[in-house]
Amino acid sequence: MATDTTARRSLRAALTLLAVAIVAFGVVALVHERTREDIAAAARARQQEQFAAVLAGRPFDNDPLQDVVELRDAELLGTASPVPVHRARLQGRPVAVIMAAVAPDGYSGPIELLVGIAPDGRLLGVRVTRHKETPGLGDFIELRKSDWIHQFAGRSLQSPALERWQVRRDGGDFDQFTGATVTPRAVVTAVARTLQAFERHREALLAPAGTIPP
């Protein structure tokens, strides 16, 4: 009968599709399981590399990846969600904090930064970790394109004073590039705000390992 064969045909098609879905799922699950540790290790290695870069050779003997507090400051950090702050220590004493910062006002989207700060509020190093700025125009903020990002090392909120934390065109102390002012302006502002956040929460950020700040 026609209806019977149609029903059987549909059932067969559905079961075939189900079988293929199960096989495909199994393959992906297997590969995921086999690569999970390597992927996590690669991500850890990448973060440690970035941490080492913004710590600029400061010696430390802990694993900053494990020593982390979460900071919430919508006004200065530009996001309402908690931002992880990692601490580098030498024999238990803090030698630096590493803060992730976002410059929301880049030329083509947010610019993600990593900022290393010494306990006295001096910048150790800044690196751009992710951005979508125009290649050849705005990407000089990357270290492999130019050493522009190096000018932050050694600066603090006292040097220069906060009102001079701007690009030269706006009357500040930081170089800009011809044809690209928006990008450095965003980065300089974000670094200054990160330093202010550090000053405001210094006690909590430098607390001994294990204590959870309020």
Binding site: A13, L17, F25, V27, V31, I39
Partner: peptide
């Protein structure tokens, strides 16, 4: 009836596997 759906499933599984292997 299900040929194209099966192809898409197979291709998606392959690509995901290649992506995971590359990430690792």
């Amino acid at each position: 009836e299900i040929r194209i759906a099966v192809y898409v499933l197979l291709i998606a599984a392959l690509v995901t596997s290649v992506e995971l292997l590359l990430a690792a």
